[in-house]
Amino acid sequence: MSSTWEAIGLYELGMGRIHGITGNGLHGFDSVALYNFTLEHLAVTAYASPGFWIGQMGLSPLPLNFSETISSPSLISALKDDGHIPSLTYGYQAGAPYRKTKIAASLVLGGYDLARASEPLTIDINTDMSRALTVGLQDIIVTDSLNGTLSLVDNERILAPIDSSIPEIWLPKSVCDRFESVFGLEYHERSGRYVLRDSARDRLRGLNPTLTFTIGTNAVTGGNTSLIQIPYAAFDLQAGYPIFANATNYFPIRRADNESQYAIGRAFLQEAYIGVDFENGIFNVSAAKWDDLEADIVTIPAADRDSEVARGQGISGVLVEEKGAHDALDPAPELTGVTFHELPAKHGDSELEDIVTVPELGREDRVHELHQDCVR
């Protein structure tokens, strides 16, 4: 329906394939407007599959290559090239709607929000960009569970990418089995998800367990670590259509068939803040801060600027500075006068994937892959 749409073609969607999500997308070029400016001729994909139920804004710096002659820069690269942001960096936290203040999500392009980030753990970006933000999930300790306090990770060696494109946390079956025991979960075979009866949910709400994730650098043991505490409320979710016919209590973990499926999705990012610096090849993970809800945006200069100061003020250096020390981080000269905005977004309770139906909850609904002519 867009007057500026220029179709490229119908292609299989690569994202989600590793987790069993398949489908096609109608790719094309179009104008993309953000606030008071427009980026021209960027690649946009219209989903032609119910496996992808929500829109996504990719933040990889890699270009999209459709053929030897047809390609498009990524969104974040186009923003930098056009002078709208100073560098290929971003900060993200998925929001916490269960907190009394109902904190919205935060996405900052070209910098990060100092008010959201605590002391960071700095990690090298993986050379495999499909697993760019890989961390070592060294332990998960639960307190006040149905079985008291215990570790949910035994001898499992879990290297997993932090992946905001998926909602759940994908773990070895042995770890999921321990979750099942301490939270009174039931595995629903058809959906591949863990559900809870109302009685179990009520009991957990009364106990109010806390999970503490020990996140290490890209190693399964040892080294520097960061502790991320996540209250039960962050996992107290309901899923409806297209997952279930009716609203159903579920817990956002999934069984991984193999190591390649291990992943840490948005459920984790409700209580964690990440800062990603593609230019210096590093990213940070820290517990999200809640004591100051006023955004304090820090811009990160480009690593390719001919300046020793710029090279020393990437994410790894800035995040450990005292509050206020970032005042000297002026944007590049050609960006003077440009305002850097935080891009807020709402975080819902059920940003999910495939369609299944719990038989006892209602009739089965059928969703068919859309024909190419039906894609809008």
Score class of each variant (00 low, 15 high):
Tyr90Gly: 10
Pro61Ile: 08
Gly95Met: 11
Ser71Gln: 11
Pro61Arg: 07
His41Ala: 04
Ala160Ser: 04
Glu119Cys: 09
Met129His: 13
Lys80Pro: 04
Leu62Ile: 10
Thr22Glu: 13
Leu114Lys: 15
Phe66Glu: 09
Gly95Pro: 09
Ser130Phe: 08
Ser72Met: 08
Asp113His: 07
Ser165Trp: 06
Leu152Val: 03
Ile21Gly: 01
Leu121Tyr: 04
Leu26Ala: 08
Tyr90Phe: 15
Pro86Arg: 06
Leu109Glu: 09
Pro73Leu: 08
Trp53Pro: 00
Gly25Arg: 11
Phe52Gln: 08
Gly28Val: 04
Leu88Arg: 05
Asp82Gly: 07
His27Thr: 02
Asp30Gly: 03
Asp113Gly: 10
Leu109Tyr: 10
Asp128Trp: 05
Val32Ile: 14
Leu150Gln: 14
Ser165Thr: 13
Asp82Ser: 15
Thr69Gln: 11
Gln56Phe: 11
Pro97His: 07
Asn126Val: 04
Val142Ser: 06
Gln138Leu: 01
Leu34Gly: 03
Ala33Met: 08
Ala78Asp: 08
Pro50Arg: 08
Ala43Lys: 00
Arg99Trp: 04
Tyr35Glu: 14
Val44Ile: 15
Ser118Asp: 13
Val142Asn: 05
Ile76Ala: 06
Leu121Trp: 02
Gly55Arg: 01
Gly58Val: 03
Ser118Gln: 11
Leu137Glu: 02
Ile166Phe: 04
Leu64Phe: 13
Leu42Gln: 12
Asp113Leu: 11
Gly20Thr: 05
Pro73Val: 01
Ser151Gly: 08
Ala104Leu: 13
Gln56Thr: 10
Gly55Pro: 02
Ser74Trp: 06
Ala46Ser: 10
Gly55Trp: 00
Ala78Trp: 05
Met57Asn: 12
Leu159Asn: 04
Met129Ser: 14
Phe37Leu: 09
Gly91Arg: 08
Phe52Pro: 02
Ile103Thr: 14
Gly25Val: 11
Ala48Val: 10
Thr69His: 11
Thr69Lys: 12
Ala104Val: 14
Ile21Thr: 05
Ile54Ala: 12
Thr127Met: 11
Ala96Cys: 07
Phe37His: 14
Leu34Gln: 06
Gly28Lys: 01
Val44Met: 13
Leu146Arg: 13
Tyr35Lys: 14
Ser106Gln: 12
Ala43Ser: 14
Asp82Glu: 15
Asp128Arg: 11
Ser164Gln: 03
Asn126Gln: 08
Gly91Leu: 09
